[in-house]
Amino acid sequence: MLFLVVSQIINGVVTGMIYALVGVGLTLILGVLNIPNFAHGVLFAFGAYILLSVLQVVGNFWLALLIAPFGVVLLGLLLELVGVRRLYTAHHDYQLLFLFAVALILQETIILIWGPIGTSVLPPAGLQGAVNLGLTVYPKYRLAVMGITAAIVAGTWLFLTRTNVGAIVRAGIENREMVAVLGIDIQKVFALTFGLGAWLAGVAGGLASPIMGLTPSMGFDILPIAFVIVVVAGLGSVPGAILAGILTGVAQSLTTIVFPEAANVVIYLLMGLMILVRPQGLFGKR
């Protein structure tokens, strides 16, 4: 039993870290642009599928993981340019509906390009197989994912807190009008944020592919989870999103032990409780 619990907790943390990457991107876009990015899930899916195709060409997982997310960034910037930007003056409902429409289109695009049947990617050579952790035997690749996501999250945090550009993004979350008043080209900040969010989603998709596999619906499956993370985290909060992502992953995998059918339901119950007890979220100010 202890063996099971420990490995499920680690599983939860690994999944949770991937959720966190998706959630951080979503919360940044939400905080700065004030839109729930309905296309965020499908960007995650593209991260996985582009990695699959790049991998077939370059043959090296790490190289593919380095390249693929930039394809997703291009896609994200394209969306920002042709749609979101045109709709800034409209009510934000229309921005998210545009992104929802795009999500439908992109989801079908995945099926057109890569086919309707799911597939999988092998972990990189050297990280296949498991390692003995004493309490449990655990797949090497998943441990590596934990380390990599931690590094990316830390890097994102450093970018936001230690660089001038990052400071502007944070200022955009706190007070958008102020950023405009300071004479900063808010358009560029929006594009940058959208690009960064897309990159995080793309990396998450790539990293997740050897664990979760690839299915055309993977984007639509992760989107509601990412929303839960943002709600639980609090508007625009990066640390909140990380914590909420891990909590979500762990809650899900622990429920699997006792009541597997409820594993997908439990996170929404947690979210509902959160709203009742602390409506502004873990780290939210408003």
């Binding site: 749609g83 429409a101 795009v102 999500a103 439908l104 289109i105 989801q107 079908e108």
Partner: peptide
């Protein structure tokens, strides 16, 4: 089979041009 794509295109056009 991929008809939701048409749905998405129509929807995007409506949102952009015919709110």
């Amino acid at each position: 089979d991929r008809w939701p794509m048409i749905l998405g295109v129509v929807f995007a056009l409506v949102v952009l041009f015919l709110r």
